[in-house]
Nucleic acid binder design. Sequence first.
DNA 1: TGTACATCAGTGAACGCGCGTTCACTGATGTAC
DNA 2: TGTACATCAGTGAACGCGCGTTCACTGATGTAC
Lengths: 205, 205
Amino acid sequence: MLGMRWQQGELPPALLAAVEEAIRARGVSSLSLRDVARRAGVSHGAPAHHFRNKSGLLTVFATQGYEQLVDMIGLEIERSTSADGAATLAAVGRGYVRFAIENPERFETMFRLDALDVGDAAFNAASERAYSMLVVTVEACRHEGRLEGLDAQLVSLAAWSLVHGLATLLISGRIADRIDEKDPYQLAVQVSQLFVERVLTRPGE
Amino acid sequence: MLGMRWQQGELPPALLAAVEEAIRARGVSSLSLRDVARRAGVSHGAPAHHFRNKSGLLTVFATQGYEQLVDMIGLEIERSTSADGAATLAAVGRGYVRFAIENPERFETMFRLDALDVGDAAFNAASERAYSMLVVTVEACRHEGRLEGLDAQLVSLAAWSLVHGLATLLISGRIADRIDEKDPYQLAVQVSQLFVERVLTRPGE
DNA sequence: TGTACATCAGTGAACGCGCGTTCACTGATGTAC
DNA sequence: TGTACATCAGTGAACGCGCGTTCACTGATGTAC
C-alpha cells in the first residue's frame, strides 16, 4: 500500500466508477475485472476484497442503476407541470428514456441478466421499486377514468415496451440515420406524449 | 477428413446452425468459435475456411436473421384478414415480435453491433429491407388518412420501439412474473392491436 | 481405363494472450494497556 | 508516551483455462489427357 490512491472506504465507489468507464471504453461484453482494477489504479486482486467476484461487482453496479432510474423518473415527475395520471405517465416515460441515454453503460448492464446475480435481494428490490412507479402511475390513470375499456396490465406493458424499445434503439445507434429529430431527449418527449395522448382515453369519456 | 460428417458445401450451413445451438446453450456473450466448431463436429480451424473470422460468421448469422424477419413479417401480412394499412401495420408488429420470440438467438445477435462487421454490405441491405417494410406500411396508413395530424416518422419510430421493446423484454424473461397473459404471441397480438386501434386516427376522420 | 496433376476442405499443433480466482504476504492503521 | 498486538486493505505471483488465429500438412475429389 505504498502509492495509496484511495482513502479508507473509497475503493468500492472508485471500482464502480471504473466499471462505467471500462464499459464506455470497451463495451459490456468485453468488460474484465482486471481492466476495472487497472482503471481504478489498484492491483487486479483488490476487487475481491470488496465484491465477491465479477458478477457481484456487476450486480451492485446494476442495482445502483435501478436506484438512479427511480431518481430520474422522480425528477421528471417533479418537473412536470401537471400532477394528473396522464402527465405523470408521460413523465415516467421521459425519465426512463432519459436515464438510459444519459447512462447507457448502466442501462445495458441492468438487462444483461446472464452476467448478474439474478437472485440478489437488493437487485430485485431496486428493480421492483422502479417497476412499481409505472404500475402506480397507470393505476392513477385508471382511477381518473383514463383507461376506459383498456386493460391496465396491457397498458403498463405497452408503455414499458415503448420506452424500453426506444431507449434500446437509441443506444444501439440504429435510429439516428432514420429520423430527422436528432435530439434523443426530444424523441423521448414526443413518443411519451404520443402514447399518453392517443392510447389513454379522454377524461370523462 | 477421415470421419467426414458433411458433404461438400454442407459445412457453412452446419456452422451457422451450430452458432444458434451454441448461443441457446451458453448465451451470446460467451459464444466461441471453438465451441461452434465442436458442435458442428469439425476441428476448430475449419470455420476459418468459410468465414473470415468470428465476426464474419456472426455477421452472416445476423444477416440471415434479418432475412427470416422479413419472411416472418410477410407471413403475418399474408395471414391478415384485411389488407388495409392499419391491419398491415398490426401484422408487421406481430411478425416482428413473433420472429424474436421464436428466434431469440438470432434476434439478440442482430443487435449486438459490437460483435458484428457493421460495414458489411449484405448485412446492411438485409437490415434496410426489414426496416422498409415498416416505412412502407406507415406510408400506406398515411395515404389512407389514418395519420391525420401525426408525423409519419414519429409513428414509425414509436411502432418500432413498441415491438422492439416488447420483444426484448419477453426474451429477457422479466415480463412473465408481471403479467397474467402467459402466451407471448398473444401479448404481441394485443400490443400491436392496441397501437393500431388507438394511435392511428379513424379512417376519414 | 489409367495416370498425373491441381484444387481445396479440413486437420491439429502451436502461438501468444488475457482472463477470474486464489493465497501467502506486506505494511499501514487502530486498539488495549 | 510507548509498546504489543490484532485487524484488514491491497499486493503480486501463481494457477489453470479457453480463446482467436495461423499454418504446414493430409488426403479426398475433380480434371486433363
